[in-house]
Amino acid sequence: MGLGRGVKVSCTVNGHKQVADGVWEGESLLYVLRERFGLYGSKNACEQGECGSCSVYLDGTLVCACLVLGGQANGRSVVTIEGLEGAKVQQAYVEAGAVQCGFCTPGLVVATHDLLHRVPHPSEAQIREALAGNVCRCTGYAKIIDAVNLAAGRL
């Protein structure tokens, strides 16, 4: 907690205890995950909460990792795309043709996982609402909605 010495971030990530020392006080959880823990699944695109490509669970709640301060994750539990039990959602994205460049996919898979656990059979309006914070520059979203419907039928 000292001046410029950095903070220690100690949290559970995907079920394993992880510790990083000397983390800059203003560093985001996204940076900690990627650059200190080597978990590159959560993508860094906008760093301002606009694109959703950094979506993770923090204590079971869907959040943008770029908007969580590293130190705020102390003692908390983080689940990233690497640790998510999201194979069925991921498979549905592949089968529906909802993955092109794939940059948005990890964030969308986490957000879809969250939606389907809250609302097992969402309407199209509910899907659009739930994924409003995840930007995809390739697909035009139609196939993403197909993928969510496909996953909903299988979960």
């Binding site: 909460g49 959703g52 979506s55 709640t61 869907l62 959040v63 943008c64 908007l67 969580v68 957000a111 969250d114 939606l115 609402e129 739930a130 409003a132 914070g133 995840n134």
Partner: peptide
């Protein structure tokens, strides 16, 4: 407000 991710925080 924002998106689910923003409303959750």
């Amino acid at each position: 407000v924002g998106s689910p991710q923003i409303r959750n925080r």
